[in-house]
Design a protein around this nucleic acid. Structure first.
Length: 596
RNA sequence: GCCUCGGUAGCUCAGUUGGAUAGAGCAACUGCCUUCUAAGCAGUAGGUCAUGGGUUCGAAUCCCGUCCGGGGUACCA
């Protein structure tokens, strides 16, 4: 039982005995005592004044006396204004440490047969351009909330829905056909996704020029946008693709193949993976069938031009298009089909979509549509809506080349990590290969931590010049602390020191106790992160934990300690911090180096 | 217009179901390596929590108004 629960229960009992009052357990606010006061946990007594009919001070004294007498982990208490500070005895804290040290699963729940199955959709790229910083946030969040869900005892299926069809792909295809001169990843040495993305930009360049020319010739902008030769050709390609024209399908397969090879490299470097991948080229027809079924059943309606619509005015929303007048499907149609296939494939208890907040409306509508179509899970879908990544120059736009490319960013940060390591004279004992692996690990930690430490719901600013930091509240700082701990533990092993989990009760210094208290919070952090879908909670906890450790490390010698019992305690404390930090950072997809 | 999310130190961000004197990092300045890794530790300085009201023992947090900003409101995704 957590300390909070112990104190809450005892307080409810105390109020009953002292004042014959029935107080709900949730009324008992137990918080960590602020550093400037003596004590470990604090009870706010204001909510009990009605029951006690006494001043805050007297009420707190009554309660404090009762608790220190009846609850064996409570040693003493003090009262400041309406706050009752309780001092918890060392026996309890050492018991906690013993548990952390010995229990490999400390803080996490294991998955069982009847665990809830959560499917997490994330990444969801288009196959016409490489991944950029915005996708990185998506991928990191998706991966991390999946890991956090697992730590909370859920079965997790990570899934990716690849948008591999549509007009945007045809634009790249058409541009390659026209101006590609047979360029391939092999003959150009270019990464496949970057190559295809180049032609997407190329298309836009020609398209814009054509529009300008047509407008100069007297056309309105709208007319020009619809009649430019490039766009007409791209549309024709899409039509051919849907008609399964052999040559078009062949080109589509080839170019998508290049993109997938490129994506695989990026995903691997980023350290994310998927259990099941869906392709929109396979799901959109399922969606179309569902919409047609809905039309037959009178859930949707058809207009004179043959387009199909859902009327959501009763739900306070608008009319929503589901099939175009030419019978082709839209984004919403595909998502209906994808959802249906997923629920056929798995017995999903919870469906989570990791998609940017620009699509809040889309998912609100999707939930209602799935519900109307009779899928009982529809309205329970969870849209994990995260904020945009902004640059100092504003929004990122692929077509205009104002994006921070994912591969470039990772490479660039690795370069910075390498230079900094060399400057500091670190890792000189490692082989080139091992050192290179560590540079990459550090760079990725910097990037991932920077992104995951902020509240996912909020927009965030990324300044390529300034955001690459390795000191202070950063991933590398946490890694550094971990490496320090491992270094101490290695030296302890070399000296033949065995760690004894017996832990006889000793005096604890302020720093030792603060660190131990922080460690004990890990399980509630994991749970809170799971409940709120927030990797940021874990990130901030890890930072506070290692910050606390560094203070302890600075003030106390571990291996230089003369008292064997104290040294043993400190070794176990350090080792436990290492374990918890590693576990926490792994929930963020961040690896810990043994040396750095 | 309507819907929606946000505004905390010069910058980037924390701040639990309302609790004590609002916290970190970066940037600036100052100390600490003969000692387990100085990618560290300690200190100085930096705030009208956008703004005006309200609710109460208590508001950055809850409610209403105003200002500013993001996103959405497509036969784009």
């Amino acid at each position: 039982m957590s300390i909070e629960k112990i104190i809450q229960n005892a307080t409810v009992e105390a109020l009953k005995t002292l004042y014959n009052a029935d107080i709900d357990i949730n009324q008992v606010q137990v918080q960590n005592t602020r550093k400037e006061f003596e004590g470990d946990v604090t009870i706010v007594v204001f909510p009990f004044l009605r029951a006690s009919k006494k001043s805050p001070e007297l009420t707190a004294n009554d309660l404090g006396s009762y608790l220190s007498e009846k609850v064996d982990i409570v040693d003493s208490f003090n009262v400041i204004k309406g706050f009752l500070n309780l001092v918890i005895n060392n026996t309890y804290w050492l018991e906690v440490l013993r548990d952390i040290y010995q229990n490999q699963d400390f803080g996490t729940k294991s998955v069982t047969e009847d665990s809830e199955l959560v499917m997490v959709e994330y990444s969801s790229p288009n196959t016409n351009k490489p991944l950029h910083l915005g996708h990185i946030r998506n991928n990191l969040l998706g991966f991390s909330i999946s890991e956090i869900a697992k730590a909370n005892g859920k079965k997790v299926v990570k899934t990716n829905i690849v948008n591999d069809r549509g007009i945007h792909i045809c634009k790249s295809m058409y541009a390659w056909k026209m101006w590609g001169n047979g360029k391939t990843p092999e003959n150009s040495g270019m990464k496949g996704d970057h190559l295809v993305g180049e032609f997407y930009v190329e298309f836009d360049k020609h398209y814009k020029a054509e529009i300008a020319e047509l407008v100069a010739g007297g056309m309105t902008k709208e007319e020009a946008e619809n009649q430019a030769p490039s766009i007409i050709a791209a549309r024709e390609m899409l039509r051919k693709w849907e008609a399964k024209d052999e040559e078009t399908v062949e080109l589509w397969k080839t170019m998508n193949g290049w993109v997938y090879e490129g994506f695989d490299v990026t995903y691997k470097n980023l350290g994310v993976d998927f259990d099941k991948i869906y392709y929109e080229s396979e799901t959109y027809l399922v969606g179309r069938d569902e919409v047609i079924r809905g039309l037959k059943e009178g859930i949707f309606s058809q207009r004179e031009d043959q387009s199909v619509w859902a009327d959501l005015t009763a739900d306070g929303l608008d009319q929503k298009l589901l099939l175009r007048s030419d019978g082709t499907s839209v984004y919403m149609t595909q998502d209906i089909g994808t959802a249906k296939m997923r629920f056929n494939d798995y017995s999903i208890d919870k469906m989570v979509y990791v998609v940017g907040n620009e699509q809040n409306y889309h998912f609100q509508v999707l939930a209602i549509l799935l519900d109307k179509l009779g899928f009982e899970w529809g309205k329970d879908l969870y849209h994990f809506s995260y904020g945009m990544v902004e640059l100092p120059s504003g929004k990122m736009k692929s077509r205009e080349g104002t994006v921070v490319d994912a591969d470039d960013l990772m490479d660039g940060m690795t370069e910075v990590a390498r230079n900094m390591s060399k400057e500091l004279g670190k890792l000189e004992s490692l082989s080139g290969e091992e050192a290179e692996k560590t540079f990459r690990m550090i760079a990725l930690a910097a990037l991932k931590y920077f992104i995951l430490k902020v509240d996912p719901r909020k927009n965030m600013m990324f300044n390529p010049e300034e955001s690459i930091d390795f000191n202070g509240n950063t991933g590398p700082f946490i890694q550094y602390t971990y490496a320090r701990i491992q270094s101490v533990l290695r030296k302890a092993t070399e000296k033949g020191l065995a760690m004894d989990a017996g832990l006889p009760v000793t005096e604890l210094s302020v720093k030792e106790k603060d660190l131990l208290k922080r460690l004990s919070l890990f399980p509630s952090v994991v749970q809170e992160a799971g409940d709120n879908y927030s990797p940021a909670v874990v990130a901030n906890y890890c930072y506070e934990l290692v910050k606390e450790f560094n203070q302890f490390y600075h003030d106390h010698s571990i291996l230089g300690e003369s008292d064997p019992g104290t040294m043993n305690f400190r070794l176990i404390l350090a080792s436990s911090v290492g374990q918890v930090v590693q576990k926490g950072m792994n929930l963020l997809g961040i690896e810990m180096p043994e040396r750095m």
